[in-house]
Design a protein around this nucleic acid. Structure first.
Lengths: 195, 195
DNA sequence: GTCTATAAGCCGATAGAC
DNA sequence: GTCTATCGGCTTATAGAC
């Protein structure tokens, strides 16, 4: 008896996500994904038109949960905005020290798909990063800082930089450094620096 | 008559570098590299034990030239350290707007080789980023700032973050934002912020 | 909707001549 | 040191049965 279509489909996405995050897109074959999901390749191709389609579905499935995690890090701290951002980067440093950590899946996606500019997964990754940046800007504005958009962009650069530097060096100290720089941006309400 | 070995070898590395930077490692085949270098695959495998060996040689060949380029951006500016770092990020923003720009090859290498932790090319990429960070620290110390190592690490996070955010969004504004944040770290000699 | 089986092509790497 | 030719394996994707 056929199982519910969405259950099978979501199981494939979950299995693909684990493998893609662990090893990257191109090093993981469709056979690998099907085996990990416990279905045959034919079933996988029934639910997804192509491997690229599956990749895009995986990235989209990680968007909202990832934003919620980051905002959760901010909300669980009672303190100033500087404290909240320090907590975010502290959590990044902590995650990066775990054995299975492999950087930011969205940034790695952008790096691996650099030769196919219009790829749906690329658009989804960019859209996700914009969502995080908008969420940062909303918190910054709510805390009474002006130039929230400009400040959020600076925090976002530190956020992505922490992921990238830590992926290269496998050293959580880079997230700590990013957190110090981010906290310094919000020591007191003031105008963002202009050039 | 056989050409000088190093000429052929360097030609292969140069051809590989162009293709690897444009499309990534895994999407470029050994056949592609050999054809672009104007040699046969057998000749390529005479000069390099494997594709991984060629990848490592490519990354190593880009280390010193890349450091020199960045330091050149700082040296051509007569001004404060804040001005010099603003120039660095201004050049990044300018480069990112060029059609062939594909982000930082070293960071993309780290992303694409994430599943093979001991890869020689990965070690070379990490070594290169450390060299840039040390060069930043030397300039910061020479300008009279204390905590040069900690400050250089913060600049490095902004540097890598600018590359990553710009690769995702294809928007030079992220390098400008990073430059503003970096300049803010060096408005006047003072102690780096501690947590 | 899920299965077995296979197509059609590309991959890294090698053999052997000269 | 460089060539032509090719191997065995892996890749994405599809055919046809049930």
């Amino acid at each position: 008896m056929p199982r519910d279509a969405s259950v099978t489909r979501n199981g494939i996405i979950a299995a693909a996500g684990k493998l893609f995050y662990r090893g990257g897109i191109r090093s993981v074959s469709v056979d690998d994904v099907a085996a990990a999901a416990g279905v045959t390749k034919r079933t996988l191709y029934y639910h997804f038109r192509s491997k690229d389609d599956l990749i895009a579905a995986y990235v989209e499935s990680r968007d909202s949960p990832t934003v919620a995690i980051v905002l959760g890090w901010m909300d669980e701290v009672d303190g100033s905005l500087a404290d909240k951002f320090a907590a975010v980067f502290g959590h990044l440093a902590r995650l990066a020290r775990k054995p299975g950590w492999r950087g930011c899946g969205f940034l790695r996606m952008a790096a691996e798909l650099v030769a196919t500019p219009g790829h749906p997964a690329l658009k989804a990754a960019a859209s996700h990063k914009k969502a995080v940046e908008r969420a940062f800007a909303a918190r910054i504005a709510a805390a009474g800082f002006d130039d929230a958009a400009a400040r959020a962009r600076q925090v976002m650069v530190l956020f992505d930089g922490a992921f990238s530097s830590m992926l290269v060096h496998r050293d959580g100290a880079y997230a700590q450094a990013a957190g110090e720089a981010a906290a310094g941006l919000f020591l007191a309400p003031r105008r963002a620096r202009r050039r």
